[in-house]
């Protein structure tokens, strides 16, 4: 299963964090920092997208990440997940963000913190991958948008 998902920028600022393994809140920032330290030191060109930190996560885990412009998308998963499958999933997540925000950039994630969380919930639930198809996710989001606009009041 997926133990946590972290989107962090090149400076180490979190843009999205979800933990599915019950990591207590007081430890989450530590995980963020450690993971950021690991991925930010790895060269995009020379290194693979997989890393480990046994001290932090124990034996059964992999840190799988992709670096897009100013953001790292990091998934920490156990051995029940396929490594390349997770890389594909990150790609799907980014594709959906890109279609929603038209040329997504870090600012979109910052100012649409709420939407990004919606989108993620359509792809991953409770640490399990629930949808892998960008089009299906998009159509669910369209449905929600329609519903919301029909309910929107004076306050928006």
């Amino acid at each position: 299963m997926i133990r946590c998902i972290i989107v962090v920028n090149n400076q180490g600022k979190p843009r999205l964090m979800r933990f599915y393994d019950g990591t207590p809140h007081e430890r989450q920032q530590h995980v963020l920092k450690t993971v950021y330290n690991i991925v930010s030191r790895r060269s995009d060109d020379l290194c693979c997208c997989f890393a480990e930190d046994r001290e932090l996560f124990g034996d059964d885990h992999k840190i799988i990440y992709r670096h897009f412009a100013t953001l790292y998308f990091v998934f920490v998963v156990d051995s029940a997940e396929s490594e390349l499958g997770i890389l594909d999933l990150i790609q799907v997540f980014v594709q959906v963000l890109d279609s929603c925000f038209e040329n997504v950039c870090e600012l979109d994630l910052i100012y649409h913190f709420d939407k990004v969380n919606y989108i993620l919930d359509e792809i991953v639930m409770g640490g399990m991958v629930v949808e892998t198809n960008a089009e299906v996710v998009m159509s669910a989001l369209q449905g929600i948008k329609k519903l919301e606009s029909s309910q929107s009041s004076f306050f928006g």
Binding site: P14, H25, L32, F113, E148, Q151
Partner: peptide, 29 residues
């Protein structure tokens, strides 16, 4: 949402639970 943003930044959020429960019963999506 503001609380959730602060929560992500690592700030301890020990209130607002009841308001969250209230929102769950809202009819608005």
């Amino acid at each position: 949402w503001k609380l959730l943003y602060a929560f992500m930044l690592g700030y301890d959020i020990d209130f607002g639970h009841m308001e969250a429960v209230n929102l769950v019963s809202s009819n608005k999506y």
